[in-house]
């Protein structure tokens, strides 16, 4: 077979493939984008799961319910490292993963305020490193900005059954509800994942995941780093409330 035949064949084959993939992509993109948005908003609202309308769990809400709940009851602020509110909304368009790579003092990150009629929740996105790759999540604090309402974690590549339990095991996330990030003197202490299990009654520790020490340490570090970054904002809201 001649070279020109080979070239023509290759060209036509790739052109046909490229064209059909473009068409398919154009056709499915709106749905894929909606799914992505829903996935993100679901992860944010999963952190306040005890306060969803009708006492439903996040999985019982339909996609449209989640999107409209987010539109109506969630305010997405943007705050800077000094705790100043930069914008009153638009936070949902920020790519947390990208901003997190910037120097801490340059970051501008979203804070989501979930306006539950009796229990306003403040939801803070977090990012950190697990054992293999990035881990991330959202932590929701109650109206006193001290007691944890809930958390939702996710990860890129933690080991299934071990590190991946931060996402897959609902019992792990449930431990966080009711824990406190400040001690009695009002000092910031964060929440620690304790290997071998947290002491009963310890308000600042939860059980780490057995067999996943490095992922657990990653979550501990992420909670501490992320919450310290938001600390100026938390303090300013608290000061405003007094």
């Amino acid at each position: 077979m001649s070279n020109s035949y080979i070239l023509t064949f290759t060209f036509i084959l790739t052109a046909v493939v490229a064209l059909s993939l473009t068409v398919l992509r154009q056709a499915t993109e709106p749905m894929a984008e909606k799914n992505e948005e829903l996935f993100k908003k679901k992860a944010i609202l999963a952190a306040v799961k005890d306060y969803l309308p009708g006492g439903k769990s996040i999985d019982e809400l339909s996609g449209d319910e989640i999107l409209s709940l987010f539109d109506e009851q969630v305010q997405d602020l943007i705050v800077d490292a000094a705790g100043k509110v930069v914008a009153e909304d638009g936070g949902e368009n920020i790519e947390v993963a990208k901003v997190w790579k910037e120097a801490p003092e340059k970051r501008q990150l979203p804070v989501y305020i979930y306006k539950h009629p009796e229990h306003t929740c403040y939801i803070f996105p977090m990012r950190g490193k697990g054992l293999w790759d990035d881990i991330w999540g959202n932590i929701a604090l109650g109206p006193d900005l001290n007691e944890v309402v809930g958390v939702a974690f996710d990860h890129k590549a933690e080991t299934p059954g071990l590190g991946a339990e931060i996402k897959d095991n609902p019992k792990f996330a449930e431990q966080f509800a009711g824990k406190k990030i400040f001690d009695e003197q009002g000092q910031f202490v964060s929440i620690v994942l304790k290997k071998g299990g947290a002491a009963p009654g310890d308000e600042h520790a939860v059980d780490a995941i057995t067999g996943a020490t490095l992922t657990s340490d990653g979550v501990t570090a992420m909670l501490k780093d992320a919450l310290s970054w938001y600390l100026p904002y938390i303090e300013s809201v608290k000061a405003g409330k007094k």
């Binding site: 993939l21 398919l24 992509r25 499915t28 749905m31 894929a32 799914n35 992505e36 829903l38 996935f39």
Partner: peptide, 11 residues
């Protein structure tokens, strides 16, 4: 094709 379809129909 599989990837695009999954992304659209079973995220």
């Amino acid at each position: 094709v599989v990837e695009l379809l999954l992304k659209a129909y079973n995220y």
